[in-house]
């Protein structure tokens, strides 16, 4: 649930750089370097800790911060802890007689999606979307829904550039009502579904993020508009933007909630990207009219039986071998 500050007595709770304290329960020392940002449930600071520079989130509201800790804790039980920033410490801070809960997590350094795209080119955006959909799929398989999915909660780390999420305050168990959301990315707001935590809820938000990259100023829903009206409005926005129009089918399916899981949307998105890039050079092989052919060839590298008299399969095999071995190498480094 989204928190409001109207009731909170600690509205102006702000710690200046240099502020130091020791946790009430675990006795770990902290010293603030700077403020990183303000989330729905508290303020995030960069701080010196025993183990180096980490992010510390200090809550204004004890309840919602604890909810967030519960989510991070559940994530840390997942193999490899790839779902969110890793949780390092949970404790209380006593400041001027008041008790504030806080937790310490891994510090993710990077840029926002839109800043990154501005600097490095918009061709990155679909790539990040593919990454994001892969992460969402894993999250969904663990029984969670991200909920408040929006560019503010995403960060591009790297190199190598990779999209990560860092504010998991809205993460909700599947089947429940989504804890936190932002209207523009919320299908309930657009009248295109409820707020039940299910994979299609996140996929709607993912589609809206992609749409937003073409309309950074966003746009509003007309008051009292029916779901047909809002859908056709969104469709028009997609069609009017050349970079979005290419993804029209994927976007509309996501908006209509037609993808039961992130994997399917990811697959469609990848196909669209491939179609888009293969269209650029004028080598139209319109013999069969089967757009899947090329992708199948590329994927089925392991057992490609129909070898034609060309070097293509060899090249593909070699690249995939190189790719696989580099993946193995990096995994080895990771472990």
């Amino acid at each position: 649930m989204e928190k409001m500050n109207s009731q909170s007595k600690n509205q102006a709770f702000d710690l200046v750089p240099g502020t130091a304290w020791t946790g009430k329960w675990n006795q770990n020392p902290y010293k603030i370097i700077k403020t990183l940002g303000k989330g729905a449930n508290g303020v995030v600071y960069l701080a010196h800790t025993r183990t180096g520079q980490k992010a510390v989130k200090i809550g204004e509201d004890k309840m919602s911060l604890t909810s967030e800790v519960n989510v991070l804790r559940a994530f840390s039980k997942v193999q490899g802890n790839v779902l969110g920033p890793s949780l390092l410490d949970v404790d209380d801070l006593i400041w001027k007689g008041e008790v504030y809960p806080f937790f310490c997590m891994e510090y993710l350094e990077g840029e926002t999606l839109l800043d990154f795209a501005k600097k490095r080119g918009t061709e990155w955006i679909p790539v990040f979307m593919v990454q994001l959909l892969g992460d969402l799929d894993r999250l969904h398989q663990e029984g969670w829904i991200f909920g408040d999915l929006k560019p503010d909660n995403l960060i591009i780390t790297g190199p190598p550039s990779r999209v990560r999420w860092f504010d998991v305050g809205g993460t909700t168990k599947q089947g429940r009502a989504v804890k936190e959301y932002t209207e523009f990315y919320d299908r309930g707001y657009w009248g295109l579904g409820d707020r039940k935590a299910e994979p299609s809820y996140d996929l709607f938000a993912a589609a809206m993020i992609l749409i937003e990259t073409a309309y950074p100023r966003r746009f509003d829903k007309p008051v009292g508009a029916s779901s047909e009206k809002t859908l056709s409005l969104l469709r028009r926005y997609i069609q009017h933007s050349p970079p979005l129009a290419a993804y029209q089918n994927v976007l509309l399916r996501a908006l209509k909630g037609e993808y039961p899981n992130a994997q399917l949307m990811k697959k469609d998105l990848i196909q669209t990207i491939e179609k888009k890039t293969s269209r650029k050079p004028p080598r139209n092989q319109q013999r069969t009219g089967n757009p899947r052919k090329s992708t199948q060839g590329r994927r089925g590298s392991a057992g490609s039986s129909k070898e034609k008299a060309s070097y293509r399969p060899e090249i593909i095999l070699t690249t995939s071998f190189l790719f696989l071995s580099s993946v193995l190498y990096f995994m080895g480094q990771w472990m």
Binding site: W25, K62, N70, P101
Partner: peptide
């Protein structure tokens, strides 16, 4: 009070509140 509990126990209490709210 809930806030007097150590953070671990507090988490369990909040889980109960969340569950009830649902």
């Amino acid at each position: 009070e809930v806030d007097d509990l150590p953070p671990d126990k507090r988490g369990e209490v909040i889980d109960v509140v969340d569950e009830l709210g649902e």
